[in-house]
């Protein structure tokens, strides 16, 4: 036996906290470094470059001056045309969000309530469009809303109009198709928000003497509020940054922040200006997210 075994243990044995902590830090570092490198290359550096680019000065001839100035931001903020564009983008977001809630809510409520055997299939159908490229669905809307499309054919056949209505290559078409394209996101958010909901609550309220409207406004709607808010945020953010649908359905005649970024970057080759608009769009994003968090906190504190 060694002498060590005869030593009585004392409480002053140094706590073994140090080596494991260093080991832990090493492990965490080893696990996250590849991810951090990936994010650096594919996310952080690009945004840093973009920020730097927004401070340079460019013009419509494609020349880029190596400055550090807010020229591009000023160019945006002093031109009423761009204010109108920002307002149009904001309005698009608000209107599409409102209508997306309007058309998604009944489906979500139905899916929560239904006891149908096909519930799983119906839920899958409601979110299946997410798996279809938005380019494809946008193409579908161009076909639907075109002069020869179902909508115009039906309107003419029923005698409601003589001439085909202009539904593509303008804002109306963009609004309609974006509402549909955002529906699955809204339905998903609503379904998640309805987690706490049970038809028993409706029955309980009804048994206490509430009529259908009262049951809805006093019980169902308040319970679904968190889902509505999440869905609204998601849809709003996706709408004001959407590019494919406004571009294709709008036929190049609908001007929004996202389409302007693309045009400035690829057609005009004014990269500094495109970068500045990008950061203005990001600022709009941040603003909306702050509002959302405020609203959420108010609902949760109730």
């Amino acid at each position: 036996m060694t002498t060590a075994l005869h030593e009585r243990p004392t409480k002053t044995i140094p706590p073994p906290a140090e080596p494991p902590r260093r080991k832990l830090r090493g492990t965490v570092l080893a696990l996250t470094v590849p991810g951090l490198l990936g994010m650096l290359v594919s996310f952080v550096l690009p945004l840093v470059y973009l920020l730097r680019m927004s401070l340079k000065t460019g013009d419509s001839s494609g020349m880029i001056e190596d400055t550090v100035s807010f020229h591009s931001y000023a160019q945006f903020l002093t031109d009423g045309y761009y204010w109108k564009m920002a307002w149009d983008t904001l309005l698009l977001g608000l209107v599409v969000t409102f209508f997306a809630i309007l058309v998604s809510y009944p489906i979500a409520l139905f899916l929560v309530r239904t006891e149908s055997r096909f519930k799983g299939v119906l839920i899958a159908l409601a979110i299946a469009p997410l798996l279809t490229s938005s380019v494809v669905r946008t193409y579908g809307w161009i076909v639907l809303l075109g002069n020869q499309g179902v909508v115009n054919k039906t309107l003419q056949a029923t005698g409601l109009t003589d001439h085909p209505l202009a539904l593509v290559n303008n804002k109306v078409g963009v609004y309609i198709s974006l509402v549909e394209i955002m529906m699955p996101y809204m339905i998903l958010a609503l379904l998640a928000g309805f987690g706490r909901f049970s038809t028993d609550l409706e029955h309980a309220a009804a048994s206490l003497g509430a009529n259908r409207w009262k049951v809805f406004w006093r019980v169902v709607w308040p319970l679904s509020m968190p889902g509505v808010l999440t869905g609204a945020l998601l849809v709003f953010v996706l709408t004001i940054s959407s590019f494919i649908t406004p571009r294709l359905v709008g036929g190049g005649r609908v001007f929004l922040l996202a389409t302007e970024i693309y045009d400035q970057a690829t057609a005009t080759l004014n990269w500094p200006f495109a970068a500045a608009i990008s950061f203005i769009l990001l600022a709009l994003f941040g603003f909306v997210i702050v509002i959302y968090q405020r609203a959420l906190r108010r609902i949760e504190s109730q």
């Binding site: 945004l47 996202a258 970024i261 970057a265 994003f285």
Partner: peptide
């Protein structure tokens, strides 16, 4: 949280 159009442009720059 970053719009694809913004990220696309940023990536192009790099």
């Amino acid at each position: 949280l970053v719009p694809a159009i913004v990220l696309g442009l940023a990536l192009l720059l790099v």
